[in-house]
């Protein structure tokens, strides 16, 4: 046990652990998505490879790996190859910060929240470089959309997070979770005495998360009926596979962040059994419930129009999140002011 806790081994373990977690999630969330879509559409989904289609991700992976890596003529070959790497790195980095349980965190940092956001913002760059380097008109249109969309949604997201920071007073993710212990009514989602609009804040965060990860109904980057495959039109084989996996890895990061910030992370909803592996269990339960919602949403709604997406951000989400920010500030300072004067 002592040997396991030495720093190099710990780092190695977590490195392997995170890579495995991201890889397994990315692979099996694809299957879960297809199965979920099948369920909603009253069909079985992939069910031929392995028992109930469990080997489908493996089959897909082999197929993608066996494909020739094509760099189409006219592309910027270096950036074209670099983009898939760049798109996969941020979610891997971000997951290092996510506390899976009170004792399972790859790297605890007192500015963990900021870390997640700063590395999360690189993701856009990767999609954009990939699209630009493809030298494909559809891909470039898609890149332009990705940027405006991500820039537009980063603002309400950060506003929401600032609201939350005012409530928690810390950027350490583990500490944020610890503050939410003792039952689901203590989760930030239900802290209506701090800010009566807390559930709305969560909804805004969730919508922004969908938009930032380019998920339906905000999947402007891959609007297949308009832009063929968007930014990755020219990618084939594992290049495409990595983009595809990164999408799911980003969803995992986004949903775990939502879990940590609003749903009490590894805290048990009933106030007991929240340490150690129990905590990890609760965390994963909440995480996958959110991911399931993301899948459910994708297979229910049509895609939003691009300008109504921006309108939603600038005209609805930003004003509301600004209002909640002000409201939270006022609610927090009201007792102080009251005590001061009376």
């Amino acid at each position: 046990m002592n040997f396991l806790q030495t720093e190099p081994i710990r780092i190695l373990l977590y490195l392997v652990g995170i890579c495995a977690f991201v890889g397994a999630n990315a692979a099996y969330l694809v299957l879960a998505e297809r199965k979920g879509a099948g369920r909603i559409q009253r069909r079985p989904g992939p069910n031929e490879a392995g028992f109930g289609g469990l080997l489908q991700p493996l089959a897909d992976g082999i197929k993608l790996l066996a494909k020739q890596v094509m760099v189409p003529p006219g592309t910027d070959a270096l950036l074209f190859r670099a983009a898939p790497l760049l798109v996969m790195a941020p979610p891997l980095m971000c997951l290092a910060m996510i506390p899976f349980s009170d004792s399972i965190t790859a790297r605890s940092l007192n500015v963990g929240l900021l870390f997640v956001f700063s590395f999360g913002s690189i993701n856009v760059m990767a999609l954009m470089l990939g699209g630009w380097a493809s030298r494909n008109k559809f891909a470039i249109i898609s890149s332009a959309r990705v940027v405006s969309q991500n820039v537009a949604y980063e603002i309400p997201m950060l506003l929401v997070v600032i609201t939350l920071l005012m409530v928690t007073g810390t950027m350490d993710l583990n500490e944020i979770i610890q503050q939410q212990g003792g039952g689901f009514w203590k989760w930030n989602l239900f802290k209506v005495w701090v800010n009566p609009l807390m559930p709305v804040t969560f909804v805004i965060f969730f919508i922004c998360m969908l938009a930032e990860t380019n998920r339906a109904p905000f999947d402007m980057a891959e609007a297949e009926s308009e832009l063929v495959a968007g930014a990755f039109t020219e990618y084939g084989g594992m290049g495409f596979g990595v983009f595809f996996m990164a999408e799911y890895a980003n969803i995992v990061v986004g949903c775990s962040l939502a879990t940590v910030l609003f749903l009490g992370g590894w805290q048990s909803p009933i106030g007991v059994l929240s340490g150690g592996l129990w905590g990890a269990g609760w965390f994963l339960l909440k995480l996958y419930a959110l991911i399931f919602t993301v899948i459910w949403i994708r297979w229910t709604f049509p895609r939003t129009q691009f300008y109504s997406l921006l309108n939603l951000s600038w005209k609805i989400l930003i004003p509301i999140s600004l209002f909640t920010l002000l409201l939270t500030g006022a609610m927090m300072k009201l007792p102080v002011v009251y005590n001061h004067f009376f």
Binding site: V111, L114, F115, F117, S118, F119, G120, S121, I122, V124, M125, M128, L129, W132, V147, N150, V151, E154
Partner: peptide, 16 residues
């Protein structure tokens, strides 16, 4: 982190 968030995530993206 602010350097990365602002310069990479925002400024470079805008330039590109």
């Amino acid at each position: 982190l602010m350097e990365i968030l602002i310069y990479v995530g925002a400024v470079c993206v805008t330039i590109v």
